[in-house]
Design a protein around this nucleic acid. Sequence first.
DNA 1: CTATATAATTGTATTATACAACTGTATAGA
DNA 2: TCTATACAGTTGTATAATACAATTATATAG
Lengths: 143, 143
Amino acid sequence: MDPHAVETIEMELAHLIRRLIAETTYRKSGDSLDRAAYLLLDHIAGSGWASVKTLAEEFRLDSSTISRQTAALEKKGHLARRPVENDRRAYTLELTELGRLELERNKQMRTERVGELLEGWTAQEVEQFSRLLQKFGESVSEG
Amino acid sequence: MDPHAVETIEMELAHLIRRLIAETTYRKSGDSLDRAAYLLLDHIAGSGWASVKTLAEEFRLDSSTISRQTAALEKKGHLARRPVENDRRAYTLELTELGRLELERNKQMRTERVGELLEGWTAQEVEQFSRLLQKFGESVSEG
DNA sequence: CTATATAATTGTATTATACAACTGTATAGA
DNA sequence: TCTATACAGTTGTATAATACAATTATATAG
């Protein structure tokens, strides 16, 4: 494997992460979902429901982190909790209609923004980048 | 442009960023440079020198952030400051020998880790991914 | 000279995370 | 049937990386 290409990937990722963190975390936009909330809602939308525990496992974060984030989303009316039968410790989380709308709205905004960044790319490049990013994401998840 | 591919890129980036932040920021490894330090050293290594101001501009971060980060690197002996002629407010930062070594050691560790994630990829895929990431990084920097 | 601009630092707040302690509930073993 | 242990979730506290505002020392323009 070409070590130069790997080094480039490593360096680009480092830059990208720092850049995107700063842009999306500290410069508050006020009315859009933060990354955490966005991913939580998207995951719950995909699987239909979740618990604090399953979300913590899915995202490999501490359940205290998830607990606070879902509490915030519940407070904003984006998530609702439903008791679990036969286990009064647990509950499941579901999207509310508002949550579904917010998710859609945010997905659209974000996708638009990414689309702008990809202006001037050929269809083939976008296709390839999408495929390779996905593949890389899988590697990261596994290892 | 295929909207599905763009959406995939958007989603994968969101996941990747969150994942890599958590892995590289909060789970302390102790003896490796954090992302900030790594990028600062790399930039200074490439350009030979820098000031707090030029670094803040380069990374689009507040100079207070840079000031603290460079102070930490100076304290660890990775950076040294040299006075600027005719301006006693300012100084330039240069890598020390230790800084150069640490940078190299870290680059190697990181590149190895990325290499592991790319195991099983064809040379062509790695090549393409490298190129497209770089291209994407440029777009992010510009817009 | 004096007013203003600039380089860097320091103070304070926020966000996303981790780890540890805690509460309440479930379950397995004596 | 108790009791010990495990488990789901929450709350307390700490840390890292950032921003913005105030401050200090120096430079420069009028």
